[in-house]
């Protein structure tokens, strides 16, 4: 059978080093005992992790990101389900246009969305509010939620529903007892993917977040703009640790590959 030769494995080793190096460096530097950026050589220290406690804006930004992600992803999934059913089940005028519209936040640069939201929210008096953040995040994570709900709606064997109808189930019962349970895995992974994207979003959010409503990545970004010191590495190390933990759980539960590769969007 085909096997990777030594040359291929050497390339692979270099590639993995390239991928992991910046992430590992951040985690190492976070353990420095010094007051400036340096590698912990002779001893390790948690002082910069303790230091996070003295910056309440990082802590509150973290919780805000968590809530924002959870809320906007949940709403995005709730909106996606009927839209996905419409796109998967019906052929109607405007179907393609609608799908393109819902997927458009993937194509529109987040800078442009940030500017558009900033302009819009300032005009209608939502500038710098949490409500504004939630609305904006629903829009940018909706394509991810829609993609996975659509995949499970398309993959649904309609004869199962027909079987339920033939056994005397009403439309509402079919939806509640058959359709929703069958698309549920898609909804959960859609929510997870949406959450991750909301939690990591910085480009768009940096435009519309105000000092009281900054998310964690925005706080980190603005902090780095002014000074790069070990504090931001320890914060980053925490974020990385949390992400890796979530990743492992997600991979065990769903398979990361399936989550990221998804299935064909347009159901062709």
């Amino acid at each position: 059978m085909s096997r990777n030769g030594p040359l291929a494995l050497a390339f692979h080793a270099l590639f993995v080093t390239f991928i992991l190096a910046p992430i590992l460096v951040v985690c190492f530097v976070a353990f420095t005992p010094e007051g400036y950026l340096s590698f912990p050589t002779d001893r390790w220290s948690l002082r910069w992790f303790h230091a996070i406690g003295r910056y309440p804006e990082f802590i509150s930004a973290f919780w805000r990101s968590l809530w924002l992600g959870a809320l906007s992803s949940a709403i995005a999934v709730a909106i996606s389900v009927p839209a996905a059913l419409a796109i998967a089940r019906y052929r109607f005028p405007g179907r393609e246009v609608m799908t393109t519209l819902f997927m458009s936040p993937l194509m529109i640069p987040h800078v442009v969305l940030g500017i558009a939201f900033l302009r819009f929210f300032t005009q209608i008096g939502l500038g710098g509010t949490f409500t504004g953040l939630v609305l904006a995040h629903i829009v940018i994570v909706l394509p991810f939620a829609l993609r996975l709900t659509l995949a499970s709606a398309v993959g649904l064997d309609r004869s199962i529903e027909h079987a339920a109808v033939s056994l005397g189930a009403s439309e509402w019962t079919v939806l509640k007892r058959i359709t929703l349970p069958l698309v549920l895995p898609g909804l959960v992974s859609g929510w997870a993917l949406a959450f991750i994207n909301s939690f990591d979003e910085v480009t768009m959010t940096v435009f519309i977040a105000a000092p009281g409503t900054e998310t964690l990545p925005v706080r980190m970004f603005l902090y780095i703009q002014d000074n790069i010191d070990p504090l931001v590495t320890s914060v980053s190390a925490c974020v990385i640790a949390i992400t890796v933990a979530a990743l492992v759980v997600l991979d065990r539960a769903y398979g990361l590959e399936r989550l990221l590769v998804g299935r064909n969007v347009h159901g062709r």
Partner: peptide, 12 residues
Amino acid sequence: ISVVARTLGWAL
């Protein structure tokens, strides 16, 4: 992983 954390790694 947050793009800010990854870019910070490159800056370091």
